[in-house]
């Protein structure tokens, strides 16, 4: 990523634009790293919890291998409830919880808590959709060979859905980049905080534009990485 930043800076229009404001470079670099750190950890954690939750949502559905209407309805309800709260409100709502977990609600580490908690239900639904694309015949074939539900999950659902799940990771990461900017407004650190304090409160275009450019590059990079990884798997199978 530092390559991308130096590329942006070395552009001649940009150096004249920055003029004497070279402090911007180091601020943007630090904020970029904070964003990558927050989003990276939050994405990882949201999959640690969201992937199993998605598996449970799929497999407990009617007629599926672990059919359980009660579990399915309750989890589905919770997922929908969390997803219906706008992130900016959710962020404030769970401040007490964030304090318990991290000790503070300000800063990069603290932002990871709301980011992760908001992303878990989102991830669960994405995973659910990926798994539902798998033909039922494949599951049935595995069952006809005597597979246990666990074997169906590990040997059929997960490997078959892998390209689709990888694309889901890209979507989640990109969403979290956006969320992290919102978290930045209430002191979450990263590019959001930088843009808010310098760009919004002080009208410093000189900060605003590099921030936006870095965000665009980040999002493009994540999407390309996701597309590339998914294509590598599907091309091999094609």
């Amino acid at each position: 990523m530092s390559d991308a930043i130096s590329l942006v800076i070395s552009g001649s229009w940009l150096s004249s634009f920055l003029g004497t404001n070279t402090w911007v470079v180091s601020s943007v670099a630090v904020a970029t790293w904070e964003t990558i750190y927050m989003v990276g950890i939050a994405t990882l954690l949201s999959y640690v919890f969201g992937l199993p939750l998605g598996v449970v949502l799929v497999t407990t559905d009617r007629g599926h291998i672990l059919e359980n209407q009660a579990v399915n309805k309750i989890l589905g309800g919770i997922v929908n409830a969390v997803r219906s709260i706008p992130f900016i409100i959710f962020l404030i709502l769970i401040i007490p919880l964030t304090r318990i977990i991290v000790g503070t609600y300000i800063g990069t580490a603290a932002s990871i808590v709301p980011l992760t908690l908001a992303a878990i239900p989102f991830v669960a639904r994405l995973v659910e959709t990926s798994f539902k694309e798998i033909e039922w015949g494949l599951i049935e074939a595995a069952l006809s060979m005597g597979a246990s539900p666990w074997q169906v999950i590990c040997k059929v659902l997960l490997p078959e859905a892998r390209p689709s799940v990888i694309l889901g990771v890209a979507i989640t990461t990109i969403n979290l980049v956006g969320y992290s900017a919102m978290a930045g407004i209430v002191g979450g650190g990263g590019l959001g905080t930088l843009a808010y304090y310098h760009g919004y409160q002080r009208y410093e275009d000189v900060v605003m534009w590099p921030t936006v450019i870095v965000l665009i590059i980040l999002v493009q990079g994540v999407q390309m990485l996701g597309d590339g990884l998914a294509a590598r798997i599907t091309d091999k199978r094609r």
Binding site: G137, L138, E140, A141, K155, V156, E160, R162, R237
Partner: peptide, 11 residues
Amino acid sequence: MIFQHFNLLSS
């Protein structure tokens, strides 16, 4: 068991 649409794992 064998099936009309084969049901092989694409992965």
